[in-house]
Amino acid sequence: MQRQAQYWFPAKRYGWGWGLPITWQGWAILVAFILLIAIGAAMILKHSLAEFIAYVAVLTALFAGVCWWKGEPPRWRWGDE
């Protein structure tokens, strides 16, 4: 019997992408992402806006990668199953 993979991030009901996490691991990743942005804002933003934008872009790419890896396969959804 094959065990179904547990997704951390469910697909959005409408549109493309993922919704809020459904597991503690997903919530931990989301909270870490938000905290790292806040820490970066406090430390980097006072020095350089360009560095902060690059920092947020890297964090966002990493977060999107985790969503792609541990989330439902993305596709356009119109609300019906």
Rank of each mutant, 00 (worst) to 15 (best):
M1C: 05
M1P: 11
Q2S: 11
R3Y: 07
A5C: 01
A5W: 07
Q6T: 15
Q6V: 15
W8E: 01
W8R: 05
F9K: 05
F9M: 07
P10A: 12
A11W: 04
R13T: 15
Y14E: 09
G15D: 15
W16H: 15
W16V: 15
G17Q: 09
G17M: 10
W18L: 02
W18D: 02
G19M: 09
G19L: 10
P21K: 06
I22C: 13
T23Q: 13
T23M: 12
T23E: 12
W24L: 10
Q25S: 09
Q25P: 01
G26H: 02
W27N: 01
W27M: 08
A28Y: 00
A28W: 06
I29F: 14
I29S: 15
L30E: 14
L30N: 11
V31S: 12
A32H: 06
A32M: 13
F33K: 07
F33R: 00
I34E: 12
L36F: 15
L36E: 13
L36V: 11
L36I: 05
A38S: 11
A38N: 14
A38K: 14
A38L: 15
I39L: 15
A41F: 06
A41S: 06
A42T: 07
A42C: 11
A42M: 06
I44E: 01
I44K: 01
I44G: 05
I44L: 03
L45E: 09
L49M: 07
E51Y: 14
F52G: 02
F52V: 03
I53R: 09
I53N: 05
Y55G: 01
Y55D: 05
Y55H: 14
V56E: 02
A57V: 15
A57C: 05
V58G: 08
L59I: 04
L59E: 04
T60C: 10
A61S: 13
A61K: 06
L62N: 02
L62G: 13
L62H: 08
F63T: 11
F63V: 07
F63R: 02
A64Y: 09
A64P: 00
G65E: 06
G65M: 07
G65Y: 09
C67D: 03
C67L: 11
W68C: 04
W69P: 00
W69Q: 08
K70C: 12
K70Q: 12
G71P: 04
E72C: 07
P73H: 10
P73R: 10
P73S: 02
P74G: 03
P74A: 10
P74V: 12
P74C: 00
R75G: 05
W76L: 15
R77A: 00
R77I: 08
R77M: 00
R77Y: 02
W78D: 12
G79M: 05
D80V: 10
D80G: 03
D80A: 07
D80H: 06
E81S: 01
E81Y: 00
E81I: 03
E81P: 00
